[in-house]
């Protein structure tokens, strides 16, 4: 996987190879979209953010340091875009909000069916709702840490690379986020 990504990035860097870039998009689109979805909280904006992240990656591929992980760089672009968006907008979109252009389709239908998870990890629809609600209540910096740590399953070190924060700061953000989510669960 890493070798493939390296090769694809080289081709994009060399002459803007769009076929290679398409492969990179296919490899990372779900992760990038998921980060965006958990950060901004609705499918419409998530798609907007995720697309913007890829377009910026393509336009700025020259600035990517090939000695570092491509995903780290790509996720940094994504989280920065999302944090900027969160700062600019006032109210949160609700998961119940209908997605423009898709009647009857709301945020829940964007969630995959639970049969993709092992049985013991199945979380009910109510729980899904609760998690999304809880995450969206977190301040952006804790939200980012929680999404990267528990939804994307990244290590503290990787998150510290992505956010360009010291590992201890990332840990503190994870702790605070975890604590806030625990309280949120207790209230349900």
């Amino acid at each position: 996987m890493d070798a493939t990504v390296k090769r694809l990035v080289k081709e994009v860097k060399k002459d803007g190879d769009q076929d290679a870039f398409r492969e990179l998009v296919d490899l990372y689109k779900d992760k990038v979209y998921q980060i965006a979805y958990r950060m901004v909280g609705n499918a419409y904006e998530a798609q907007d953010m995720a697309q913007e992240a890829f377009l910026r990656a393509y336009a700025n591929i020259e600035s990517y340091d090939e000695n570092r992980k491509f995903s780290t760089w790509l996720f940094r672009i994504t989280t920065n875009l999302c944090i900027d968006r969160l700062r600019k907008k006032k109210p949160d979109y609700s998961l119940d909000a209908e997605i423009p252009g898709a009647e009857g389709l709301d945020g829940y239908s964007q969630l995959s069916s639970p049969d993709k998870l092992p049985d013991e990890q199945v979380v009910t629809m109510e729980m899904q709702e609760w998690v999304q609600e809880g995450i969206l209540k977190l301040p952006p910096k804790y939200r980012t840490a929680i999404v990267l740590r528990y939804i994307e399953d990244l290590s503290i070190q990787e998150i510290s690379d992505i956010l360009e924060l010291p590992e201890n700061t990332v840990k503190t953000h994870v702790h605070r986020g975890r604590e806030a989510l625990r309280k949120h669960l207790g209230n349900t």
Binding site: Q34, A46, V123, M127, V131, L181, L185
Partner: peptide, 8 residues
């Protein structure tokens, strides 16, 4: 629970 959230 957070880890078990369905992926999108």
């Amino acid at each position: 629970i957070v880890q078990g959230t369905s992926h999108v």
